[in-house]
């Protein structure tokens, strides 16, 4: 996993609540058996005016000029500002894969759906929860100032605005540790192999019907 320590980047505002994973990456693109290549279809139904399908030449598609990611001022954005309950719906990890493949490293919103939250951290994306009032202020600042960027410091858990204002955020220690060090969960868990084996043995003795053969 890509490490995340500190990130400075342009902010794009997606002013809409309950953005679901079907909206982040529509189902026709889930047929891929790879983890990469989803970026061109991120927010496909908002981004393009025509219906997308896998394998098409996206350079020939007509872009929706009203969608933020198609506007000149947000080209190269790597921080997405969003509204409450971002990432609700299905468990498809294709959603964070698409965000990461497009170039997003951070999403800031008042709340996130649980499964999407887990999936994002496993793909090197930092999700920051800020209260609605702060998110609202950031929306206004981004819309008012072209080229608005934020400095995200994971180590010290703070966001620094261009005006020098500081927003502190919380993140659980384990997820922070994994992101800062780019650690693979499986490798870490397998360090506990003896504990898992011992548990499994006790569990099998207590409830043998949970094991077949």
């Amino acid at each position: 996993m890509q490490k995340f320590e500190r990130h400075q980047g342009l902010v794009a505002p997606l002013d809409r609540a309950n953005v679901d994973t079907d909206l982040i990456i529509p189902k026709q693109f889930l047929k891929s058996i790879k983890r990469t290549g989803f970026g061109v279809n991120l927010f496909d139904e908002l981004r393009y005016l025509d219906e997308g399908y896998p394998g098409q030449d996206v350079s020939k598609r007509s872009l929706n000029p009203d969608f933020i990611l198609n506007q000149d001022r947000y080209q190269g954005a790597s921080i997405l500002l969003a509204r409450r309950n971002f990432g609700c719906g299905s468990s498809r990890e294709h959603a964070p894969w698409a965000l990461a493949d497009f170039g997003f490293r951070v999403v800031i919103a008042p709340s996130f759906a649980d499964i999407f939250y887990n999936n994002s951290f496993k793909n090197g994306i930092l999700l920051i929860t800020l209260d609605e009032e702060k998110v609202d202020r950031l929306f206004k600042a981004v819309e008012a100032n072209e080229g608005y960027s934020l400095d995200i410091d994971l180590e010290h858990q703070r966001i620094v605005t261009p005006e020098g204002e500081i927003f502190e955020f919380s993140v659980d220690e384990f997820r922070k540790h994994c992101l800062l060090n780019g650690l693979d969960d499986i490798g870490l868990t397998l360090q506990d192999e003896p504990a898992i084996r011992a548990f499994e043995q006790r569990h099998r003795e207590a409830r043998p019907w949970l094991f077949r053969g």
Partner: peptide, 20 residues
């Protein structure tokens, strides 16, 4: 629990899920 693909791999490899 519904889980993502990284977690599917984690459960296949370790028979455990990281959870809170």
């Amino acid at each position: 629990h519904g889980i993502g693909t990284s977690e599917v791999e984690h459960v296949l490899a370790t028979q455990c899920l990281l959870a809170q």
